[in-house]
Amino acid sequence: MKIKELQRICLEVRRDIIRMLGEAGSGHPGGSLSAAELVVALYFSVMKHRAKEPDWEDRDRFILSKGHCCPLLYAVLARCGYFPVEKLLTLRKLGSPLQGHPHNLEVPGIEASTGSLGQGLSIANGIALAGRLNKKNYRVYCLLGDGETDEGQVWEAVMTSNHYHLDNLCAIVDRNRLQIDGKTADIMQLEPYPEKWRAFGWYVIEIDGNNLAEVLGAYLQAEKIKGKPTVIIARTIKGKGISFMENEVEWHGQAPKKEEVEKALKELGERI
């Protein structure tokens, strides 16, 4: 798929996110918007998967470890055809399967139920180990938030992926430099960040995570790395695409009000 087409899908997905959150009245826009290119590129260009056969055994697996950014994943899955796009507006509504954090048993295409941070990469390790033993060629992708990597379990998992040389596993860190309470640098210093991953034995690719050409290039490169796991540290802008949300900590977990939805949609519309 051409980059132009992927850019169009990213815009569409960002509009979905804004509409969903506006309708729900709550949710997490910042990290959903920052990671749009990272997830759209996976589902529309990189991963092998079948929307009409979500459990296809040879599919590539995607674990959204930062489960609170599920509006992004729901929008991407709907745009891929896993479920009707209209269903997106039931986010957080009574009786809807689209919970505030994703659940694999209720939503087609969701690989793992997440929501409590720091657990996805361990699950991804288990799936990657099983794939290798079952002689399956699927790849496992796991998206983490940068703030999420404060969790100790992440580093248990980081050691494990290296120990077992899981080259069928690719972690992506949405390095938007903000977490709930403020800047990652102020809450808990992560730097020297790429060096940490390298020291744990990972192959590190650093990119502009909102630049689709760089994102696609990184995924291609990651597939070629053998004998060790790869992490893509994707520098992104939290709230990307909406001027008043970009790099603003308050938009981590707050939904836009009606006028803000209109303003945001207008901004997204103007960029087509």
Partner: peptide, 18 residues
């Protein structure tokens, strides 16, 4: 997986999911 019970449990989860 070493002295890492949280990791142990979720690796088991991933294996079981397959």
């Amino acid at each position: 997986v070493g002295v890492a019970e949280q990791n142990m449990t979720d690796i088991a989860c991933g294996l079981a999911m397959e």
